[in-house]
């Protein structure tokens, strides 16, 4: 199989098959909710949908989102931007992706989902050797991502971990009803504005299993406490009430300059579509 076909296969797999850790977190959440409640009905529908999409190889959500590729830098020639775009165009023709790319000035559709800057392609040195990783992130969840600047007087949030916690919980409450809960948070503490959004989003590549927890003790504690506290707010699946508002929280930090202290939250819906493909190198 050539590289374009392999990448089109990765796109289909990512769009139609939810990662195991996310599906198992959803199943666990369903068991926690009271039978017959809105929360239980919603999670039951979600899980039926996950199974059906995998069986059919169909997009599990019709918003096939922004495609972000994270590609091992040593694959820069084999998996070039031109090759990736060919695969995206092919996947679109086959109905693995919605025609989902609009020119922001003219309003016209790029019917093959390819344009200057679409899909988003990063060549990085931190993915496994020979690996291509892909995340599909829908617009409903992207609209719920936020950036805070500490201190924040409306939240009473200062420049410390307690202040960071207030920002993250505020983002959870503001996303209710809109972000397709139960969601997953990728968070970056610090950094400059642009890098922080990138880093926050990259945290969504980490597993929800214990293997994906932060190796830093302070951040690991914060990941756990934010998850517990968010789920105590009663927001629930799709904001209809219940015990499951988040499936997981993944936090990283970056250094900052003395004048800036940003807290950046990338909100991901339950349809956290990430996939990977490995080439021999």
């Amino acid at each position: 199989m050539n590289t374009v076909e392999k990448l089109a296969g990765l796109i289909r797999e990512t769009s139609s098959s939810l990662p195991e850790d996310v599906e198992s977190a959803l199943a666990k959440a369903k068991r926690r909710e009271q039978g017959g409640s809105s929360a239980s009905v919603v999670l039951g529908t979600v899980l039926d949908n996950v199974r059906l999409a995998r069986k059919l190889g169909s997009p599990l959500c019709q918003d096939t989102g922004t495609l972000a590729f994270y590609i091992d830098a040593s694959l820069r020639r084999k998996v070039s931007p031109a090759v990736v775009k060919k695969a995206v165009a092919l996947a679109t023709t086959r109905g693995y992706l919605r025609k989902n790319c609009i020119d922001s000035v003219t309003g016209k559709s790029y019917d093959d989902n390819c344009a200057d800057g679409a899909p988003v392609i990063h060549y990085v040195d931190w993915v496994e050797k020979g690996c291509v990783r892909l995340v599909l992130k829908g617009g409903g969840s992207e609209n719920m991502s936020r950036q805070y600047s500490l201190p924040d007087s409306t939240l009473g949030a200062g420049r410390d971990i307690a202040g960071v916690r207030k920002c993250i919980l505020d983002a959870v409450v503001k996303a209710q009803g809109f972000g397709c809960a139960p969601g997953i948070l990728g968070v970056c503490i610090g950094g400059d504005r642009a890098t922080a959004y990138e880093v926050a989003k990259e945290q969504l590549l980490r597993s929800l299993d214990a293997s994906g927890e932060s190796s830093d003790a302070v951040l690991r504690r914060l990941e756990k406490s934010i998850l517990r506290e968010s789920n105590s707010l009663g927001i629930g699946p799709m904001g209809l009430g219940g015990k499951t508002t988040l499936l997981g929280v993944r936090i990283a930090s970056r250094p900052r300059v003395p004048a800036s202290f940003f807290v950046t939250v990338a909100y991901m819906c339950w349809a956290c579509r990430r996939g990977s493909l490995k080439f021999k190198v």
């Binding site: 529908t45 979600v46 949908n49 059906l52 599990l60 959500c61 019709q62 918003d63 799709m238």
Partner: peptide, 10 residues
């Protein structure tokens, strides 16, 4: 249910 695209299509 947001995201349940395949099920609603069915």
């Amino acid at each position: 249910v947001g995201g349940a695209g395949a099920l609603y299509a069915a």
